[in-house]
Design a protein around this nucleic acid. Structure first.
Lengths: 217, 217
DNA sequence: GAAAAGATTAACTAAATAGTCAAACCAATG
DNA sequence: CATTGGTTTGACTATTTAGTTAATCTTTTC
């Protein structure tokens, strides 16, 4: 985790992310978080005061990490196709390394994004990406601008950039979000997980690349 | 809801679906479910005994409803392209009518799908789709078979049917799952929701149709 | 190496919440 | 219109769980 936290705090945050992702803000149990981190429950309160504060710290971390890392490829040099491929690869890797991330964000959304709304200003003001100077809140606009650029350059069809952004992200995320349920019904799938994850990158790229390629009809 | 439940039970199930979707199996509060249904809390126990049993009833209903309705277009007549379009339209409509559905399923998955695993046999044995004779568990295979057929008929590229299935479903679901967070960051999006939902259908179809179209290179 | 500061723990308290129950209500039936 | 069966309710109990505290261990500092 980030450097502003010591080892114990990082262990707590990591365990909390897991538990909040699995059971939600209210469903997660402080005792379970402590057990997962291998620490006494009182320590959670010693370092983070309350469950609500702990959640907010986890949220702030996840939000920064998730969104900052996603925009990096979009600012690199290269053709539209190359950047698109980079973006998809990076995003799949990010999700693969942190499978709890999307569920954590989706839960926050499902609950009406109360913490997001409450801290949105603070996050935007405090946590600028040192490299780009962007705020994480600029992510949608950065992605949209990328697809708009593709349209201008003639690399892709006139497809609505917003719709495209949702499709690409959804195709990436859903694999990780739904894998367990497909694995439960389709025997043998679990063993293929690593291979499918790797193949997923090129699959999504090709689907989107050819799906958006200018057509002559 | 289904006919096997009386009016009160249906009200409870509907309210429970909402609350479980928002807050999870453990996070949901029996009192909140009762309030939402406009009923006394004791009635929930009168009809469903415990929170856990109530959850399982909701799950069984949702699972049947969600998966049964999804397969219908796949069994209709028509070209590969027509059926694909039908499937996407139906699926987006289904999600639009029941926005709580995907989150409910995703939560179950996030928790390790304990109820799904426990009841999987029972659901498969008891709840056959009267029209097709399929069990809901056959859904992935039905979808896979559909895309395999497309490959055989030369309508689509050799793309892995599993990957394709995930991409299509993810593109449909993510729009509804993530809309609130984009709406929070992008002013004016909320007002466009209905139009975007409608446009979404053709967008996904075109992306997938052209993305999978056989190419000559 | 003693004292102070910080980290960690087990046992405890306060509050929230699932679940119970006996009484009240209501609709059907004779 | 009294009786019976199913339904609904408010008040209650038992249990779970967030949060506290005082005592103990550990590390740093002089």
């Amino acid at each position: 985790m980030s450097t502003q936290f010591n080892e114990t705090e990082q262990a707590i945050l990591a365990a909390a992310l897991e538990e909040f992702s699995k059971h939600g803000r209210q469903g997660a149990r402080m005792q379970d978080i402590a057990d997962r981190a291998g620490l006494n429950k009182a320590l959670l309160h010693y370092y983070f005061r309350s469950k609500e504060r702990l959640y907010e710290e986890v949220f702030t971390y996840v939000f920064r990490h998730y969104f900052t890392r996603m925009t990096t490829p979009l600012r690199s040099d290269g053709s539209f196709a190359e950047i698109l491929r980079q973006f998809i690869h990076q995003y799949v890797d990010l999700l693969n390394e942190n499978p709890a991330l999307p569920m954590f964000m989706l839960r926050e959304v499902a609950e009406g994004a109360p913490v997001f709304r409450r801290r949105i200003g603070e996050i935007a003001a405090t946590h600028l990406d040192p490299e780009s100077g962007d705020t994480p809140l600029g992510l949608p606009n950065t992605i949209l601008a990328f697809f708009e650029r593709g349209v201008r350059e003639g690399a892709v069809t006139q497809a609505d950039p917003f719709q495209t952004m949702i499709s690409v992200m959804g195709a990436c995320i859903y694999f990780f979000a739904a894998f367990p349920i497909f694995a439960a019904v389709m025997p043998g799938l679990e063993q293929q997980r690593a291979a499918l994850t790797e193949a997923r990158k090129d699959h999504i790229f090709e689907l989107v690349y050819y799906g958006l390629k200018p057509r002559t009809e």
